[in-house]
Design a protein around this nucleic acid. Structure first.
Length: 680
DNA sequence: AGATCATGCAACGCA
DNA sequence: GCGTTGCATGATCTC
């Protein structure tokens, strides 16, 4: 269970602040300019919990949504065997995983730990190598289902948390829980350490009064005595080293331990409720734990040098829910084109039950969080990639979602107002703009991105969807890769507010294509104001064949893509809007008579990954703000896609070309509206 | 008539 | 033998 909830939104946020902040001293962390950090911190502190969770309220529907992209490769929760069938793992997982591993190993050798996810069939494990200790933490996509192969390791390594807690004599907070009595690996500069030591010696001054550990536990027990049994507590196992490291990461000392205890208890509580919920409320019991073995909480206490605290998923989804699943976008049914659910927005997730949260902890004090950048990077990168459904199944606050497959979600308890949303959006824009600048593609050389895109010719960026074969690329890595890649940046992209001129950024389409497109618009496509439409191509058989190349329309290619000097063309990095994957393609041309044929090569994986067939189409955008090329494969219902229709689509596409190029065809609404309006 | 583009197929490289 | 690459050809469209 990736999305283990430990906090309510605001607490999580603060908790994250705290957790992010404790890694200040991490020398491996992404170096960020001082003022930038300051700015980030301000923004961070300034932001609403909903913002920070990537949750907003859609203007039209008052429904919450998250700004994360779809999660196409999210494996089924029910069982590892079924996960592969219902959600086929992404292509070239092994290769990607290998790339990830190699990155990991290379970075770990330099004592920086990179989060990697290995895709092993349908199970997704993460190896997190702690700095210094090189101690692996293992977690699975679904913690309720620890793969057999990993169980022994977990069991052997783990200690019984509650036993541990008992041994530690929770009520005696001066004993084991004193920071002094625990030897944590020192990661801080000496000076800082001295200061902290001094602080501790002086005792708590301005800090909030540190809560008594025993009292914390006692209070918790009181409030949960009816729902949490001793067995629940006993069933939790946590590595001792994890405890220590976690406590250290949480601020160290008593405070750290207190925070950790809270997290553990919250986790216990959530897990317990989750299990109960799964057992009694979910008729399908799809989340029931097939693994009778105790659960390792280690899985959910993830630390690394560069990611002091990466709570996978919980912070991205509904914090109030005990069952957390990756926030997702995409077609949500109800309002859109059903065909779309099978298309680019085909990532309809199964219904994820949402349950109530139990008693909560008061928010910890807000702390600076210089390392929040990673998280922000992840999250913010998703912000502009709102498409498909701009709404999320997951809500913030005391909301509940009711969803069946393809059924409309019902959101209750929405507390956000339009006014609040405006403010949030403004802040998001500010923040995004700032972050984008840092992530911009700049100059070029090939190595790093080649590596990034190696093997599978694809990888995922740091903000990738947190499922499937994803990997947390530290933003430094991304930056480095971007800075040294042959990535081509459209230099002549007109900065146009595409949403303001809807017709100019939309391809002309077949009726079913048009339906798709309209559906996307309804679902939130309109929110992608940073994207400028460059070209669209209805795929032919030869485009989706095993040649792995797509012929591009010549005029658009010449107009919107970089000019090619040599026939070999250039490497061009495309980010898949749907999956956020980075595809390293080659844009080139063939001499043809006295003319040229423009091609996009290395598209095979992209096509397969998106399940594109003849009659589907691709759309290429450029991100106006950061200059990236974005590609999107759009599937259309195949039933109506006869060859004739495909032909007609091709014709219409050509019409579009001429319209676009004609002096009068100023890309204004009039040029397109007739076609756009042909299908409702 | 010229341009565009889908696709067939030969040449080539590799296991 | 198989997969990939690159060119040539022909169908279709536009002017």
């Amino acid at each position: 269970m990736k999305n283990m909830k430990m906090h309510e939104p605001d607490r999580d946020l603060h908790g994250l602040q705290r957790l992010e902040s404790v890694g200040d001293q991490d020398p491996n962390f992404i170096p960020v300019k001082e003022n930038v950090e300051e700015e980030e911190r301000d923004l961070w502190l300034d932001r609403d919990p909903e913002d920070l969770l990537g949750v907003g309220v859609d203007d039209d529907s008052s429904m919450f949504y998250t700004d994360f992209s779809t999660l196409p490769d999210f494996p089924s929760i029910s069982s590892s065997s079924s996960s592969s069938s219902s959600h086929p793992p992404p292509i070239n997982e092994a290769a990607t995983a290998a790339a990830c591993r190699s990155s990991s190993s290379s970075s770990s050798s330099s004592s920086s730990s990179l989060w990697t996810v290995k895709s092993e069939k349908s199970d997704y494990h993460m190896d997190a190598t702690m700095e210094e200790e090189k101690e692996p933490l293992l977690w699975t996509e679904d913690s309720m289902e620890i793969p057999q192969s990993l169980e022994p390791q977990i069991d052997v390594d783990c200690i019984n948390v509650m036993q541990e807690l008992g041994d530690m004599d929770l009520l005696d907070t001066n004993c084991m829980w004193e920071s002094n009595s625990i030897l944590f690996p020192s990661e801080k500069p000496e000076e800082e350490e001295h200061q902290e030591q001094k602080k501790e010696e002086e005792g708590p001054q301005d800090e909030q009064p540190s809560e008594d550990l025993g009292m914390v536990f006692l209070e918790w027990l009181k409030s949960n005595k009816e729902s949490i049994s001793a067995e629940d507590l006993r069933s939790i196992k946590l590595k001792k080293s994890t405890i220590e490291c976690a406590a250290q990461r949480l601020g160290g000392g008593k405070e750290g331990m207190t925070q950790l205890l809270k997290l553990i208890l919250q986790w216990v509580q959530n897990h317990h409720l989750h299990k109960r919920r799964m057992g009694s409320h979910n008729p399908q019991n799809r989340f029931q734990n097939p693994n009778p073995n105790p659960i390792s909480l280690d899985s959910h206490l993830c630390f690394s040098s560069s990611n002091p605290w990466i709570p996978h998923q919980p912070f991205y989804a509904d914090q109030t829910a005990n069952v957390g699943f990756p926030p997702m976008m995409g077609y949500m049914g109800g309002g859109g084109d059903p065909g779309f659910a099978n298309g680019a927005g085909l990532f309809c997730q199964p219904d994820y039950p949402m349950v109530d949260t139990g008693p909560t902890w008061p928010p910890p004090p807000a702390l600076p969080h210089p390392h929040f950048s990673l998280y922000n990077s992840y999250r913010d990168q998703h912000q502009p990639q709102v498409f498909g459904s701009g709404r999320n199944q997951y809500t913030s606050g005391p909301a509940q979602m009711v969803q069946g497959n393809g059924e409309r979600l019902v959101q209750m308890g929405s507390s956000a107002t339009k006014e609040a949303r405006k403010k949030r959006m403004a802040r998001q824009r500010r923040f995004l703009s700032h972050h984008r600048q840092r992530q911009q593609y700049s100059s070029s050389t090939a190595e790093q991105l080649e590596r990034l895109a190696s093997d599978a010719n694809c990888t995922t960026s740091s903000h990738d969807n947190p499922v499937g074969n994803w990997v947390f690329w530290p933003s430094s890595e991304i930056d480095a890769a971007a800075a040294t890649t042959t990535a081509v940046v459209p230099s002549d992209v007109a900065v146009a507010e595409t949403a303001a001129t809807p017709s100019s950024d939309q391809p002309i389409l077949q009726p079913h294509h048009q339906r798709q497109f309209n559906s996307e618009r309804r679902q939130g496509w309109k929110q992608e104001k940073n994207l400028k439409f460059l070209l669209q191509k209805v795929l032919k058989q030869s485009d989706v064949g095993n040649l792995g190349r797509i012929v591009l329309p010549k005029k658009e290619a010449e107009m919107h893509l970089p000019e090619l000097e040599a026939r070999d063309g250039i490497s061009i990095v495309m980010e898949d809007i749907v999956t956020s994957r980075i595809w390293n393609m080659r844009y080139r041309f063939w001499p043809n008579n006295k003319s040229r044929m423009y091609l996009l090569e290395n598209t095979g994986d992209f096509v397969r990954c998106n399940g594109l067939q003849e009659g589907d189409f691709i759309v290429i955008y450029s991100d106006v703000k950061c200059g990236k090329y974005m590609i999107r494969g759009v599937k259309v219902p195949q039933q109506g896609s006869t060859k004739m229709e495909v032909k007609r689509a091709g014709k219409q596409q050509r019409n579009l070309h001429s319209t676009l190029l004609s002096p009068d065809g100023d890309c204004g609404p009039s040029s397109f509206s007739p076609v756009n309006e042909t299908v409702s």
